[in-house]
């Protein structure tokens, strides 16, 4: 295994009863790339994300993150290891403020004693102030600082998507899994999103694993693409290679006689 592999799936399968949702999937991801996972609806893309984040346990095969087998980790421990995600249908903490959403994502990095955290003075107060400051930096980075005291549910749809990405970043993760981040965005918002994703990769040196149906976005920012169909990997390569791959065209368009 090369040094900069951040994530590796080895013959991963997931079955629900008789249904093979993910079947014998293999691929590697480097720590400085944007990898996209595409495929028709029901191809097993979100299932793959759920396997990586520990929501599902693989029926067979292994998932390695920084050479660690994730099998024995619970979802929250996987986040602590450095993998964070966003959701296909936005899952913010709606009735918490924007700032609280970010502070919550930093929770597992806060090493404060339970009793000290209750007191409105001393180390608890100091720690809270420094956490707020850090959280504000994340919001400033995402241009969301002006909304910090609003409830997350009151943001526009596009801003909610951005907040979700910002929240995933705030966990301190090195690998971000973005599940259809452009769903429901208009073309100019999608263009903005592409800049954000590139920015996170180039300036923050994060690896980004993306599920997306918007082909303009996928072809525009991906370093490499993995294509799933009926749970199986049917192609892997650069955007150019994928664009011209007959198996991919067949999966998407069907085969004419």
């Amino acid at each position: 295994m090369s040094d900069n592999t951040i994530l590796e799936l080895q013959n991963v399968s997931l079955t629900f009863g008789g249904l093979k949702a993910v079947s014998d999937v293999n691929f590697k991801m480097k720590d400085n790339e944007i990898l996209s996972l595409i495929g028709p609806n029901g191809a097993g893309k979100t299932s793959t994300f759920n396997l990586i984040t520990g929501v599902y346990t693989a029926t067979s095969g292994a998932i390695l993150y920084k050479s660690k087998n994730l099998k024995k980790y619970k979802p929250h421990q996987i986040t602590n290891l450095g993998i964070a995600r966003t959701f296909q249908n936005i899952r913010l903490f709606k009735q918490l403020t924007v700032l609280e959403n970010i502070i919550l994502a930093m929770d597992h990095r806060r090493k404060i004693n339970f009793f000290a955290s209750l007191l409105p003075f001393g180390p608890g107060k100091k720690e809270m102030e420094s956490v707020r400051e850090q959280a504000l930096k994340y919001l400033e980075y995402a241009n969301l600082a002006e909304y910090k005291d609003q409830r997350a549910e009151n943001l526009s749809y596009g801003k909610q998507r951005e907040l979700e990405i910002c929240r995933a970043l705030a966990t301190g993760a090195d690998l971000l899994l973005l599940d259809e981040p452009a769903a429901g965005l208009n073309p100019s918002e999608t263009a903005g999103l592409m800049d954000i994703i590139r920015n996170i990769k180039n300036n923050l040196n994060k690896a980004i694993f993306l599920i997306e149906h918007d082909m303009k976005l996928v072809m525009g920012i991906s370093d490499r693409i993995v294509v799933l169909d009926y749970g199986q990997k049917i192609a892997e390569g650069t955007p150019e290679e994928i664009r011209n791959n007959p198996a991919v065209i067949k999966a998407y368009l069907g085969k004419g006689e």
């Binding site: 929250h76 913010l92 609280e100 919550l104 929770d107 404060i112 608890g124």
Partner: peptide, 23 residues
């Protein structure tokens, strides 16, 4: 407190809370 915020996040969305690293 930190603990209270985590509890409120569980009320808001258990799955998301877990995915943000909350036990």
């Amino acid at each position: 407190s930190k603990f209270g915020l985590a509890l409120r996040s569980i009320r808001e969305d258990e799955v998301a809370s877990q995915m943000m690293g909350i036990d």
